[in-house]
């Protein structure tokens, strides 16, 4: 037989196979159970309430808050600019574009951490990057940002700095009024964000 025809038949067969198999199989279950456990153990997914408050106040365009509670609860109270993706609809196609992207950092939150963490585990298992969990959830948010407690007078300086920041954040975000603690420490309260190092798409061009 003509070698050209053999080659043509071979390529056509491969073409038929690739046309017949479903796409996006590479996205599924990127992490093994062990890898996931390692990530959970390292607490990499958590973002503290202070960091989030800071990003909200600074109108950081790179974050997207996602409320995983029910729509009722979302109606009653939500963080500024948050969107509502109830945990039950986290797998819906409607939200894939939001959850699976590498532009913004998504921060899940619920009342505690349980639901948000579940949302994180599901999306992480799907191989999505860039999703995080608000540490302590809304309960801890209320405790630290909305009604911060003044530290004891014997506390170290940075406790006061933190308190000042929280008072400011609270005012900016509609909590209690501001009152300076008299602490003159100008120490930066800007929290450090522990972003994971991201893999970048290869650069190219001719």
């Amino acid at each position: 037989m003509n070698p050209r025809l053999i080659l043509a038949a071979f390529i056509i067969t491969l073409g038929l196979i690739i046309a017949a198999v479903p796409e996006n199989t590479t996205k599924q279950y990127k992490l093994t159970a062990n890898q996931l456990l390692d990530e959970i153990k390292s607490d990499m997914q958590f973002i503290s309430t202070d960091e989030v408050a800071d990003m909200i106040i600074n109108k950081d365009p790179s974050i997207q808050l996602i409320d995983v509670r029910s729509p009722d609860q979302f109606e009653k109270f939500s963080l500024p600019n948050a969107i509502n993706i109830p945990l039950v609809s986290i797998l819906s196609d409607e939200w894939t574009d939001v959850l699976d992207q590498d532009v913004k950092m998504n921060i899940f939150y619920s009342n505690g951490t349980l639901d948000a963490n579940e949302a994180w585990m599901i999306t992480r298992q799907l191989g999505y990057e860039n999703n995080y969990v608000l540490q302590g959830g809304l309960n801890y948010w209320a405790e630290t940002i909305m009604n911060p407690k003044a530290p004891k007078s014997t506390s170290p300086d940075d406790e006061f700095a933190k308190y000042d920041f929280r008072k400011g954040a609270s005012a900016a975000l509609g909590g209690a009024t501001v009152s300076n603690t008299g602490n003159t420490s100008k120490k930066s309260t800007k929290p450090k964000i522990k972003r994971k190092k991201k893999k970048k798409r290869a650069a190219g061009g001719c």
Binding site: I11, I12, G15, L16, I18, A19, A20, V21, P22, E23
Partner: peptide, 11 residues
Amino acid sequence: SQGFFALLLII
């Protein structure tokens, strides 16, 4: 899909 497109391109 990419696969179907590939087949068309081959043809």
